[in-house]
């Protein structure tokens, strides 16, 4: 395979798996901004290593390994920031995160279906909080409810969603 063709393959793989890398990084960092930064850095590193890329070998395990390394580097470089996990926990959970991140797109499909099964009120709360990024205070104000009540409703919805996604993914495999 020519160099150009191989690079094209690489770019195809890299773009195709952006969401999975994002899911991976987010799961270990718990912060969307931090995860986006790490994915950006990871893309850069992967690109620098493009000559090591072998189209015949699976791309994802390689990319996940570098993402994990970048997550650890991020934790090391941002010790003064508010961080959810420490290096030890990242190491301990990275295998499971990798397994689940592989199925990230299937999860997104399942999730969209599951969101529709929520009650109208809960669906609206979920939409506002997670898809439109409204703050809890704003949501509570708009709904004329307390933040505590919103939290309870959102947590209940999240549990329903998790259960529904689990079932749907179980059926598929």
């Amino acid at each position: 395979m020519g160099k150009l063709e191989s690079r094209e393959q690489f770019i195809r793989q890299l773009t195709e798996h952006q969401n999975r890398l994002y899911g991976y990084a987010y799961s270990l960092l718990g912060d969307h901004g931090q995860a986006a930064d790490v994915v950006q850095e990871t893309n850069l590193i992967l690109w620098r290593k493009v000559d090591e890329f072998q189209p015949s070998k699976p791309f994802l395990p390689w990319a996940f390994a570098i993402t994990r390394f970048q997550v650890l580097a991020f934790l090391r470089d941002h010790q003064r920031d508010r961080l959810l996990l420490d290096a030890e926990l990242v190491e301990a959970m990275s295998d499971e995160v990798e397994r689940k991140a592989e199925k990230f797109d299937a999860m997104r499909v399942a999730l969209r279906h599951c969101v529709q099964l929520l009650s109208t009120n809960n669906r609206e709360l979920v939409e506002r909080r997670y898809y439109r990024g409204m703050s809890l205070t704003d949501i509570a104000e708009a709904a004329d409810r307390t933040i505590g009540a919103i939290k309870v409703a959102l947590m209940r919805s999240r549990r329903q969603l998790a259960e529904c996604v689990r079932k749907r993914l179980a059926v598929e495999h």
Binding site: A35, A101, F104, V126, L161
Partner: peptide, 10 residues
Amino acid sequence: QMISAAMQAD
């Protein structure tokens, strides 16, 4: 976490 990421991705 994965569900949070999926919602954010969408």
